[in-house]
Amino acid sequence: MKKEDCFYLGKIVKKYSFKGELLAKLDTDEPNLYDNLDAIFIDLRGNLVPFFIESSQLHKSDLLRLKFEDVNDEADADALLKSDLYLPLELLPKLEGNKFYFHEVIGFTIKDKNFGDVGVITGINDSTAQSLFEIDRDGVEILIPMNDEFIVKVDRENKTIEVNTPEGLIDLYLEE
């Protein structure tokens, strides 16, 4: 399993018991979706290694208490501390309407209500305070903020996202 085929679920933050149980901080708004997992991938030195889950339960809202098969004492648990957890992309819950996962819209076409076809989404820049669509328009990069007020419609069937951006925003990138 490659990292590109997975999504980041969270990180093992501390040991819970002397029997090898661990607590993981989940990076999700809905931790209860991940309460009954059979297995999980743990990033060990850059390799995703599958671990089978003997038992798991939510612990204090956003922590998941995990007991892995073959992790039976503190030494085994210590080896997994601070490790990142991953799951295959197909386990992501399906989103409806104008909600989407960043990886899901790569390759979608952006259409602006006033401007028309803007270009194709090549990536999402989420390193800034406001996440941005990175759009390629014939070799010119256009950045559009991923603002709920701008996003009119996500059309998964036709792989398009309709936006309504402030007048002149797209033109800023196209003026010579």
Rank of each mutant, 00 (worst) to 15 (best):
E104D: 05
I106C: 07
Y8K: 10
A39E: 10
V140N: 08
V152K: 05
N72I: 11
P93G: 06
D27E: 14
D62A: 13
V105Q: 08
I110Y: 02
K99R: 14
A77C: 05
T109C: 00
Y86P: 03
V13M: 00
C6M: 02
M1I: 09
K111W: 10
F68N: 04
K11E: 10
L33N: 13
S83M: 11
G10C: 08
G46C: 02
Y173Q: 02
K14Y: 07
E4C: 08
A77D: 00
Q57G: 10
D29Q: 15
E141A: 12
L85F: 04
L81D: 06
L37Q: 08
E157Q: 13
L91R: 12
F41R: 07
N32A: 15
P88D: 02
N147E: 14
K60P: 11
T160P: 01
P166E: 09
F7L: 14
Y34E: 01
N32M: 14
D43S: 13
P145W: 03
T109W: 02
N72Y: 04
I170P: 00
F133K: 07
R45A: 12
V163W: 06
Y173V: 03
V13G: 03
V49I: 11
N47F: 12
E157K: 15
I170S: 06
K94R: 15
K99V: 11
C6K: 04
F108Y: 06
M146N: 12
G123H: 13
K113Y: 07
F18M: 11
V105D: 06
L91M: 14
E96R: 15
Y34M: 00
L23Q: 02
T128R: 10
L169P: 07
S55P: 10
F18Y: 13
N32L: 15
